[in-house]
């Protein structure tokens, strides 16, 4: 119920720069949720976000869900011995007192089976499932294909 209220509150407060909003659940802070425009719906989209654990207990991101894609998954880009591959990440650790970034060249959500092409300026909700903290929904801004991240005053990028 809490999550529903949180999601409802988010949608009501939706603004042009949602990527710069911060959502908290328990000891976790979720912010800078963004994606890139896609060329058509036949290619996967991407999902980036930053999660900070201010508590004293380790947690982990174990899954994502969104109405924007039929098969959203967590992946990690790994460059080893000069070869880039993209193994499926079963879970992404969010250790106590640390921040983890899903960002270009590292962990990312891969949005397969897009319902529609993602267009710059659109936004869509993604529900993150954490091992301990539970579920939380954030709104994701679709930035341009060439964006490197959201332009937030506090977003160290």
């Amino acid at each position: 119920m809490n999550h529903f209220l949180l999601a409802a509150a988010l949608i009501l407060s939706a603004s042009a720069a949602m990527a710069c909003e911060t959502v908290t659940i328990g000891d976790l802070t979720v912010e800078h949720a963004w994606s890139k425009a896609t060329i058509g719906a036949g290619r996967p989209g991407v999902f980036y976000v930053e999660i900070t654990n201010t508590g004293s207990t380790d947690d982990a991101l174990v899954g994502i869900a969104t109405p924007a894609a039929g098969m959203p998954m967590l992946h990690e880009t790994v460059v080893q011995d000069g070869i880039a591959s993209m193994p499926h990440a079963m879970s992404i650790p969010v250790p106590a007192g640390q921040s983890v970034q899903l960002s270009p060249g590292g962990y990312h959500g891969m949005l397969m089976g897009l319902t529609n092409a993602l267009k710059e300026g659109d936004s869509f909700p993604v529900t993150l499932s954490f091992e301990k903290a539970g579920e939380v929904t954030v709104n994701v801004d679709v930035l341009s294909l060439r964006a490197e991240g959201p332009d937030c005053a506090d977003a160290g990028q």
Partner: peptide, 13 residues
């Protein structure tokens, strides 16, 4: 490859 969500768009950008 064009179905590559992370590495390829970053480099092409």
């Amino acid at each position: 490859f064009t179905s590559c969500p992370d590495v390829c768009p970053t480099t092409l950008s």
